[in-house]
Amino acid sequence: MKNFKGTFTALLTPFKNGKIDFGSIDRLVKHQLANGVDGFVINGTTAESPTLTETEKVELFKYVRKMVGDKVPLIMGTGSNDTAKTIEDSKKAESLGADAILVVVPYYNKPPQRGLYEHFKAVASSVKIPTILYNVPGRTITSLATETIRDLSKVPGIIGIKEATGKVDFAEEIIKACGKEFVMLSGDDGTYVEFLGVGGHGVISVATHVIPKQMAQWKAWAAEGAMDKARQDIAKYNDLINLLFVEANPIPVKKAVQLMGLIDSAEMRLPLVELGEEHSAKLKAEMTKVGVLA
């Protein structure tokens, strides 16, 4: 099993004239790897997974896998609010060669905790590759409870969680309940350094598209016990990180990487639309201020 305690980018999907822009993916992925990112999530929320076709998901995964080879871990987002569909997609991910699956809490239909337990257990049991839970109540409404995560951590195949509430005390609860080997990945860039401070292992990040070297450095400093250094450094980027979420992800980050010249277009698929002029101007100014743009 590959090491998932690292810095992962929730890879966005560049579009041009309605189609995936693979040339831009090439530049983007190379830039990430050159600046310390350990691996990628394919077909996550940041990839605009709700509007990718089944064919596009396969093409996207195969293209990135061919680029990065077998040593770089690739996690495939397979979650939905239908357990049977999630199992089907998870099996497809396994057959494609994904190193793990990322499975979001079922959205919209609001299952109780016992339903969440049975959902994740059924999905994890359907594949041989590792399953990573994804808790993001800001998008799903329903949240995993500490006790449910503890029980799921004992299910074979479930190795960790992407915890995106931004509540560091909740992350600390999970670590105490599940033990230090249960992989703890932050899903909230703004609180990432504090997450590392309570024992977190890494991140599945949006901001790594823009500041990959810095995100990797914070983890290294935390491992060395240099938390003050990490706290001082992230403070320089707080405004930038906030601007990356000023509208629904991945609207702002697409504009940011377009400004960096890493992708040709900030094109979105409806119902998402490109970042407005006012926010774009603020984002550009902040990127210039922190040195991301010359």
Rank of each mutant, 00 (worst) to 15 (best):
I161E: 01
L152Q: 08
F182S: 01
L185M: 02
L74C: 09
Y63P: 09
I101E: 15
G166Y: 03
Y134R: 01
V168C: 03
K85G: 15
K154T: 13
E59C: 08
V136H: 07
G197C: 00
S95E: 15
I101M: 10
I101N: 11
R150V: 12
R139T: 03
S143E: 13
M67H: 10
E88Q: 15
E94L: 07
S186A: 03
S95D: 14
G187Q: 02
S125K: 14
Y63W: 09
T83P: 15
G157E: 06
I159Q: 06
P106Q: 09
S90C: 12
Y192V: 01
S80T: 13
R65N: 06
K91T: 12
D169V: 11
S80Q: 13
P130M: 12
G166T: 00
S153A: 05
G187R: 04
I101V: 12
P130K: 11
L133I: 12
A122S: 14
I161Y: 00
A98N: 06
F195C: 00
T191E: 04
D99Q: 08
I159P: 08
D151E: 13
S95T: 15
F182N: 01
K180E: 13
D169C: 10
F120Q: 06
T148V: 04
K162I: 08
L102Q: 02
D189F: 04
E194N: 09
F170K: 13
V127D: 09
E59S: 14
K167C: 15
M67W: 10
C178A: 09
Y63L: 13
L60R: 08
I75W: 04
N109I: 12
G179V: 03
K180M: 10
F170S: 15
G157R: 07
D82Y: 13
G157V: 05
G190W: 08
A93H: 09
L133D: 11
V136R: 07
C178W: 03
P112R: 14
G179C: 06
V123Y: 11
E172F: 01
T78E: 13
L196N: 04
D99Y: 05
K92C: 15
E59T: 10
G160D: 01
V103L: 09
L116A: 06
Y108I: 10
F182Q: 00
K92E: 14
R139K: 04
L74H: 11
D188M: 01
K66C: 14
D99I: 05
F195P: 01
G79K: 05
H119L: 09
G166R: 01
V123G: 10
L196M: 01
Y63H: 13
E181V: 07
L74R: 12
L74E: 10
Y107H: 15
E94K: 11
A124S: 11
G166H: 01
I129Q: 08
A84W: 15
I161H: 02
P137G: 02
I129G: 08
V183W: 06
L74W: 08
N81E: 08
S126A: 11
S125L: 10
D89Q: 12
E181Q: 10
L196H: 02
P73S: 05
T191G: 00
P137E: 03
K110D: 15
L133V: 14
L102M: 12
P137L: 04
E173G: 03
V127H: 08
F195H: 00
V105S: 03
I149G: 01
V103Q: 09
E59D: 14
N135F: 07
S143L: 07
V193A: 02
H119T: 07
G138T: 05
L144S: 06
M184I: 09
T83D: 15
A145P: 10
T131M: 11
